[in-house]
Structure formats: C-alpha cells, structure tokens
Amino acid sequence: MNTEPNEVHNRPKLVTVIGGSGFVGRAVVAALAKRGYMVRVAVRKPEIAYYMQPLGNVGQIQLVQANVRYRWSIDRAIAGSDYVVNLVGVQAESGRNRFNAVHVFGAKNVAEAASAQNIPLTHMSALGADLKSASVYARTKAEGEQAVLKAAPAAVIMRPSAIFGMEDKFFNRFANLARFTPVLPVIGGGKTKMQLVYVGDVAEAVALSVEGKLNRGTTYELGGADVQSFKDWMGDMLKVIDRKRCIVSMPWWAAKFNARIIGLLPNPLITADQVTFLKSDNVVSDAATSEARTLQGMGITPQGADAILPAYLWRYRVAGQYTKMREAH
C-alpha cells in the first residue's frame, strides 16, 4: 500500500490582490480569474465581499482579511503567493483612512512585506502623482511610489488617469446630478484636459504585469483613447443620458469654498483637495508615449468612452432604456 502523500502538479499560481473588492479590484480579479490564476482577495471586511466569488470558478477566489495600515495583516495575507497586486487608495479622506496612512505608510507596508517574502509586486498609483503638487492626494501618491520602489525596486507602478466603467464615481455622479438640476457646473471653465481610461483596460494592464510581460521597476501611464476637456466630457455624458443642461463655469475660488462645505458631508461630490487636483491636466506624458510605457505600448488598444458609456448611463435617461433618443441633425 502506497503511504506517500499525494502531490499536486501544475498548481495554478496564486495572486493576492489587496483592496480587490472595489470598482477597479473587481475588474482586476475577473481578468486574473479568466487567465486561470487562483486569486486571494485581501480586504478589510471580507464578510461583506462575498459577491467577489462568482467572478471565478468554484474555489478559485478566496477572501482574507487585511488592512494596509497593519503590516502583520499584510504578511499573513500574502503568505504563499506568487504575485501581489496593491490597489488600495482613497480619493477623499475619512476616519483613519488618511492620504498619508493609505498612500504612503500602507504602500510601504505592502512593498516591504512582498520584498521580505520575495514576491513580485504591482502597485496602483495615479496619473498626476507629483511630489511638488499642491494636492495632498497627488503628493502622497508620489511619496507612495518612492516608498514602494525603495522597498521593492523591481515593482511595476501603474498610473491610471480617472477611470470610468459601470460602477465609476465620475460619470455616475455627474449623470445623477443632472437628473435633479438644470445647471451642471464645471470648475474653471472646464478647461482641464483629461484622458479618461476604461476600467477593463486598466485590469488588462495589471494582468499583463502579473504574467511577467511588462518591464520590472517601470512606471506605466494608463490613458484612454481620447483627450478632452472636462467640459467636453460632461457634454458627452449629457448626450448619452439625453438631457439638456446648462454647463456653467464656476471660478476656482468659489469651487474650493463650496467644496470645503460639501466636504463635511458623507460621500461628497467633490472635496477641496480634488478641486486643487483638477487645476492640472491629467494626460499621459510625452515621455511615457515615446518610451512605450502606455496601454498602446503594452499592445492594448484603449476602448473609447463613446462605446462604453451607453451601456450603463442609460439608467439616467428620463425613461431609462426605453427613452427614445433624439436624432442627430
């Protein structure tokens, strides 16, 4: 009788996605599961993230508890992994989730934990990350990148522009606002250039890094198919939801003043720091383009917003999917 233990051959590689239950995380987990990876989703509250499991086959996706502010929880969550992806970030501060705590200290914890266990890492930053930025969000994102590369020099850094998709907090918020107000304010004339990127394209880029198809120790800038002003993006959104609204300019000072008041509310439309961040264009740099550190350089053709927005913004039309769209003249 053979008493030797059974050996498992060709075990699928295990990828731990930290912060994998959010908007971007769901797309990343789905892209990895589709490729056959075992995916461990590390989140603060796994008991409310069971909706992740249907993104893969039975047993392919598992949930574990972790908080980037506590190094021991990261060490435990990534143990035995073949790759780590850190997607944790906040757009507005609340409670203990401060920019510095999450973007810098948390990123440092993950990078040091991955390095200690010799596990390769992909870190999600943001387009516009800048050590000299007046925006705390942008500045801490850049400081986080520094901390990551110091601890794990071979880490892949992803810098996406504002991300759109089914559950985004960009078009959904403004489309919802357009349901209740005849006026849609744009800050500073809405002249800020933005290169919005589709969440599915961002997920594909992350998956390529996990597959080892991207250069280690490199920062990639992820921008979409189109570069437009904030005002033009709002115009496109209004066309999709078939609503006519007056787009009016709001001076920077007035926007910041209102944002400070609105920022006191839970889940504010915009914060004072976001107003500051909007003063700078958010587009892929010429250097990244020339050095092929973009989606196109990876071989990914960015999907245009015109093909994606109607698939989920229809719910903001007067009669939803049954609204008869006006014919273009």
Score class of each variant (00 low, 15 high):
Ile163Gln: 02
Ser280Gln: 15
Ala31Ile: 10
Val68Met: 02
Ala152Tyr: 05
Ala155Cys: 14
Glu204Lys: 10
Ala292Ser: 11
Glu145Ser: 00
Glu211Thr: 00
Ser280Met: 12
Arg260Glu: 11
Pro251Val: 00
Asp75Gly: 04
Ser94His: 15
Gly59His: 04
Ala311Trp: 04
Ser229Cys: 02
Arg26His: 08
Ile241Phe: 13
Ala288Pro: 00
Trp314Ala: 12
Asp82Phe: 10
Gly217Cys: 06
Tyr137Glu: 01
Ile247Val: 15
His329Trp: 05
Met124Ile: 15
Cys246Arg: 01
Phe174Met: 12
Arg317Lys: 15
Leu208Val: 01
Arg216Ser: 09
Ile74Arg: 04
Ser249His: 01
Asp242Cys: 08
Ile241Ala: 07
Pro54Lys: 03
Gln303Tyr: 03
Ala155Lys: 14
Pro46Arg: 03
Ile187Arg: 02
Thr181Gln: 12
Pro5Lys: 04
Asn215Pro: 04
Leu14His: 10
Tyr312Lys: 01
Gly320Val: 14
Ile187Lys: 02
Arg96Phe: 14
Thr323Ala: 10
Val136Phe: 06
Gly22Phe: 11
Arg44Tyr: 06
Pro182Thr: 07
Ala111Val: 05
Gly263Leu: 11
Gly235Asn: 09
Arg173Leu: 15
Arg159Cys: 04
Phe180Pro: 01
Ala307Met: 13
Val88Glu: 01
Arg44Trp: 05
Gly165Ile: 14
Asp168Asn: 02
Val84Ile: 11
Lys244Glu: 14
Leu208Phe: 13
Ala152Cys: 14
Lys193Arg: 13
Asp281Arg: 10
Ala151Glu: 09
Ser125Arg: 05
Leu14Asp: 07
Trp233Phe: 07
Phe171Ser: 04
Leu295Gln: 03
Arg11Pro: 03
Gly36Asp: 07
Arg69Ser: 07
Phe174Val: 12
Pro302Asp: 08
Gly59Ala: 06
Met298His: 03
